[in-house]
């Protein structure tokens, strides 16, 4: 995971909630796009591919590429199609996780 993110908020909002990514506490803006919020928080990669284990992160931000997959509540979901809610427990999908999306 990187610590310095190249992604900046232009008009940061104040209402933040706590979520966890791979066991690490993150304070993210409530209701904002989850993939965007994770990028700003310095999260990268989001997952590793089931085929070669290569690192991946968001590519299209519009729900088409499935490269932003993360695991929440046992389900593999597209981070770019979700909003930040309180207490999300996010992990990287298991190596074969993409299949049950």
């Amino acid at each position: 995971m990187k610590t310095v993110s190249p992604f900046l908020e232009i008009d940061p909002q104040s209402d933040h909630v706590l979520v966890r990514f791979e066991g690490q506490d993150l304070s993210l803006p409530l209701g904002e796009n989850l993939a965007g919020a994770l990028l700003v928080a310095g999260v990268m990669p989001f997952r590793h591919t089931p085929v070669s284990g290569a690192p991946r992160g968001p590519f299209c931000m519009m729900g088409a590429c499935f490269d932003c997959l993360v695991q929440i509540d046992g389900m593999t979901v597209q981070a770019c199609m979700l909003q930040v809610t309180k207490g999300l427990e996010i992990t990287m999908p298991a190596a074969r996780g993409a299949a049950d999306a």
Binding site: I10, V40, P45, P55, M61
Partner: peptide, 18 residues
């Protein structure tokens, strides 16, 4: 990671002000 479509960068800007 770090390679995105230009459209994705625009979406980040529009959707999240990023």
């Amino acid at each position: 990671p770090g390679v995105m479509t230009a459209g994705a960068a625009q979406i980040l800007l529009k959707q999240s002000g990023i």
